[in-house]
Design a protein around this nucleic acid. Structure first.
Lengths: 216, 216
DNA sequence: TCAACTTTAAGCCACTTGGCTTAGATATGC
DNA sequence: GCATATCTAAGCCAAGTGGCTTAAAGTTGA
């Protein structure tokens, strides 16, 4: 596997360059599969000390990537809410799903790279205790609002059941991104992505808001 | 994190002990986060050479874990098919979902450990190209039969769309196992697992067999 | 201009890693 | 019994790892 396209743009500062390079390398070879030296080198640093200087440790870098993308996505989420309110779609359950998921697509489109999904998978596997299940607290406002709305919609479920269904959504969507990534990497666009996205969102809405079984 | 419970039973041969120990360690600390030395040590080996002897390389060990569990699960899958035929449930679409997913639960119950889900996630992330998308060929017979039946049920979808929906199922289920694992690890059984399992299967069936949107 | 601060470079260090060789132990087949 | 094949132990090695110190370069503000 070459370093193809791993070196990010030289326009941004070195801290961001390290974040972008690490995201790609982590996605390709695993969070523990890349040395800090290589990350620094790919980011154009002549010395691996730069990583320690900016992020302290490997886990610090991992968290920085997550926070960096989280912040980017939340801007988009707030915009989407504003647009939905303007268009009178704010009551539509599907809006919640779109607000949570589509900004990740936007990330891919805007930056032309699709490493984030793979990175996020690994991140969630590493930090399931910390990240899963925080329906409230310590989340950026856009995502927080989406989760609060979701909880209200799912008032027929217990806390743990609602939480579980939320995680379902995350994983279903990661699956879509994984397939998308695979198709992009292999060069064959096996399916129209917009079509796949539409089908997946419909699946997610159907599963997420599925009524509980009626007695008898 | 201690080595608590990482050392597997001494009754099995050392090759299997290494597989079991590696599965747990990989799940906890990442496939690239554990040295072969530690795996060997936890498996009761005095020397890390044992890993190289049995599996050659780290990837060889990873594949061996996957194959080991795959084989175990396929026995159960064939049994389930036989039971379904006997009970006349073979036409029920839900059977397909159960045959694919429940053996993994059985794995957890039988061996009292829940590292497999986390390991499998990492495995699929590593080998998405190889594993995803092989609807046919090179699969054990039970799983192969389930996938063939699924494909027939989804005849209103294109190949790529059907494939994508299958992966959706895998990820949704992994999500359930992830939550289950989290609850078990943290000691709190936040939700009745049987109830959660039932809800998840219903979600999966609803999403997997969701009709395509009608025109107009 | 120059001082204070931030960022990069260079190189050292003890330690771990996976691969390897060799020898010894244990099981297996005849 | 005994030879053959299978498995385990012991230890060496070059390469790579993250952490660290020190110095230099660049940036900023007064």
């Amino acid at each position: 596997m070459s370093e193809r396209k791993a070196r990010p743009d030289d326009q941004v500062d070195s801290r961001t360059r390290i974040i972008l390079a690490a995201e790609i390398l982590f996605a390709r070879e695993g969070i523990d599969g890349v040395s800090l030296r290589r990350i620094a080198a790919v980011a154009g640093q002549k010395n691996h000390h730069a990583v320690q200087y900016h992020f302290g440790t490997r886990d610090g870098l991992v968290q920085a990537i997550f926070d960096y993308r989280m912040e980017q996505m939340d801007e988009r989420r707030l915009t989407m809410f504003a647009e939905a309110e303007r268009d009178g779609r704010i009551g539509d359950p599907r809006i919640i799903v779109e607000v949570i998921l589509l900004p990740q697509i936007a990330l891919i489109d805007r930056f032309g790279d699709h490493s984030y999904a793979n990175f996020l998978c690994q991140y969630l596997l590493r930090n399931s205790d910390a990240e899963f299940g925080r329906f409230g607290g310590n989340l950026p406002p856009g995502l927080q609002r989406a989760l609060t709305m979701l909880r209200q919609r799912l008032d027929f479920l217990s806390d743990s059941a609602a939480q579980r269904r939320l995680i379902t959504v995350c994983f279903m969507f990661l699956n879509l991104l994984a397939v998308y990534t695979r198709d992009l990497e292999s060069g064959r666009a096996s399916e129209d992505f917009d079509e796949a996205l539409e089908d997946t969102i419909r699946q997610i809405v159907a599963a997420l808001f599925l009524p509980v079984r009626q007695e008898g």
